[in-house]
Amino acid sequence: MNANFKSWPVIAILSLVSLPLLIMFVFQIVDTFTNPYPGSIWPQMFTIEHWRFLWEEPATGRSSIWAVTWNTFVFASTTAVAVTSISLTAAYALSRLNFPARRFFLAGLIVLHAFPTITLIIAIFLILQFLGLYNSLMGVILVKAALELPFGIWIMKGFYDTVPWEIEMAGVQDGASRFTVWWKLVLPQVQPGLAALLIFSFLSGWSEFVLPLVLAPGNDAQVLSTYLSALILDDAKPDFNLFKSVGLFYAIPVIVIYLVFQKKLMNIYGGGSKG
């Protein structure tokens, strides 16, 4: 940051500790379109054979990658929309509206936000069985959206809290109902937050692994995370080039979205996200 200190020792140490990650990243990409000599790991020949899963007929008992990708997209986007829209209204109520037991609901929000939801998975598994939603995409979507909700409300409330009260007061004075004030005056102010939450929940849904694994293990509702993990578990002799190609295919949207919306997302990743 300034000339009073030398920076090369820091760079050296940082590079050293970053080396394993760097190696993983580089090989993660290189290995998807090269082949090593047998018994070695160094890439030698260019090939696209590792990507054949994209166009070849799936092995029996396996779903087609495109059906799985579609599932993943439906899962991620539906949860994102559900989380965002429910958070939009609930967070506004908690941030700005008068109603009885508001304190109680706010305390509840904090508790829920901190509560480790994954501990409930066994009970949720059984609830879905009772409801007949086990092994369906619908069921996982509901659960994922629900578990993501306290976080969404928390984030949205943070955005609402920054909207000046005077804007709303002025709207009310100008004769608009509270609903109109929210819809026409406040929502436009929290649009950045809305977008960030939407993207964040989409990424979170896209990456989700445990919920689909437990709640929808069947082939019909398979998503890319469970597809990839099943692929890795199944093979007696691991074909890492194939795994990595599927993995890269899986991660590309994440990386692209992250690169495009980096600034917007940084807020959320820093803001009270769970480790």
Binding site: P164, E166, I167, M169, A170, G171, V172, Q173, D174, G175, A176, S177, K184, L185, P188, Q189
Partner: peptide, 27 residues
Amino acid sequence: SQQRNVGVVFQNYALYPHMNIRDNIAF
């Protein structure tokens, strides 16, 4: 408030930042 027919000028003016001036006044 909505039915009182009172005009208020707030200390920080509370203009709606996403609307242009015409829409602000027309609101």
